[in-house]
Amino acid sequence: MTLNDIKPGQECRIVDVNLDGATGQRLMDMGFMPGTKIKIVRNAPLVDPIDLVLRGYHVSIRHQEAKGVEVEEL
């Protein structure tokens, strides 16, 4: 399951980040690491961005990026 599958209001935990290069680095800089909890605020199919909260702050990312973040539901 990847981050783009998670519905608004739901929480999940990062299992793995499968993104290379600049995008992967950027997400890591923002705190996307295995074990980190994420709460989805807004996620509409095909509408970018996905809004979420992790580590106490808001982050917006694209569906394309969210597909690279493997998660488990909580």
């Binding site: 290069g21 600049a22 680095q25 950027r26 800089d29 923002m30």
Partner: peptide, 8 residues
């Protein structure tokens, strides 16, 4: 910057 890599 958020970080100090050589990406940006």
């Amino acid at each position: 910057t958020y970080s100090l890599t050589s990406y940006s």
